[in-house]
């Protein structure tokens, strides 16, 4: 388990960040202000915003530090909800074009995820406006953990009883990518026998939906819940055994079997915000052929 946790924690994505061409000063080529960076999967995208702003601000038409302007990210003109981990956004958004996932990294090339920086007087609907910078991001993250604590334990006691030093260290462990410190505090919150399991399901098709179902660790007959149990109940059209849609579930870029137990998967794959994020991804043509599924 420790090995999987280590891989999940250290998972990263190669990102090519550009700016929407309509927002650049006339004559500035898009390539001139593109940035290639490697971002951990388990982090919020705007945590890199100060660095990104600093790199591109000279090429922009407007001053993005202006209080009246909002900044956000887009992938193929679709705004990204920064309040979910980067890896989850990548899995959910690239699932829309499965053929794009076919080519993996090779010795002479790497896959890049191209996203764009955008700004304007109004943030797109659903995108949380960033108004307090890193302080807001930290506050949001702490409240996610409070929710997680409540879902797991039925009260926020474990979060409330963290010393200020521990709370600070918890956040710093995310910034400094210190897994040992992170897990030391996370294990104080995650119980051996949870009440419910904090799971977020990201569905991209037929439309963008984010579900946060109430999931018990065990069924009434004391059997551990599997993803199949939950998804057939939640999305019967997609997951009925007969005529199943060409969809797979992905967590941290890894396909998870539908028969996997949810709590066991949670312990291995929970994200830095305490939730287990599951993306429903379309299968590629090859995968459909292998699984023998029909559209």
């Amino acid at each position: 388990m420790d090995e999987i946790r280590n891989l999940v924690w250290n998972g990263a994505i190669n990102v090519k960040l550009t700016v929407k061409s309509t927002l650049l000063i006339a004559g500035v080529k898009k390539e001139r202000c593109s940035l290639n960076i490697r971002i951990p999967r388990d982090i919020y995208l705007p945590m890199y915003l100060p660095f990104m702003k600093n790199q591109v601000k000279d090429y922009l038409k407007a001053d993005i530090d202006d209080r009246e302007l909002f900044v956000w990210f887009e992938y193929e003109n679709v705004p990204l909800y920064w309040n979910y981990p980067v890896g989850v956004l990548f899995d959910s958004m690239t699932s829309l074009i499965p053929s794009g996932r076919k080519r993996g990294d090779t010795s002479s090339s790497i896959n890049m995820w191209t996203i764009e920086l955008a700004y304007g007087p109004q943030a797109p609907s659903g995108v949380l406006p960033i108004v307090k910078g890193q302080e807001q991001i930290q506050g949001y993250w702490m409240h996610q953990w409070k929710q997680v604590c409540f879902i797991l334990n039925g009260s926020a006691k474990q979060m409330m009883s963290l010393a200020m030093y521990d709370s600070k260290k918890f956040w710093e462990s995310v910034i400094k990518r210190d897994r040992k410190s992170f897990e030391f505090i996370a294990t104080k919150i995650i119980p051996a026998k949870p009440r419910h399991i904090p799971v977020v399901i990201h569905q991209s098709l037929p439309e963008m939906q984010i579900m946060q179902p109430v999931i018990s660790a065990f069924q009434a007959d004391q059997h551990e819940e599997t993803f199949m149990d939950v998804l057939t109940h939640l999305l019967p059209v997609l997951f009925e055994k007969k005529g199943r849609a060409p969809i797979k579930i992905v967590c941290s870029g890894i396909e998870i079997p539908l028969e996997a137990h949810i709590y066991e998967t949670y312990l291995r794959f929970f994200s830095f915000d305490g939730f287990l994020h599951i993306s429903l991804c379309l299968l590629t043509a090859n995968e459909v052929a292998i699984e023998g599924l029909e559209n």
Binding site: A123, G126, L128, V131, Q136, H143, A156, Q209, Q212, P213
Partner: peptide
């Protein structure tokens, strides 16, 4: 009080609201 992303139903789209955190 904090800015939060809220779904009006369990499956609907998200909206940005100031939320009075209900934990206490």
């Amino acid at each position: 009080l904090g800015l939060d992303s809220i779904s009006s139903d369990m499956r609907q789209h998200q909206e940005a609201w100031y939320s009075f955190h209900p934990c206490d």
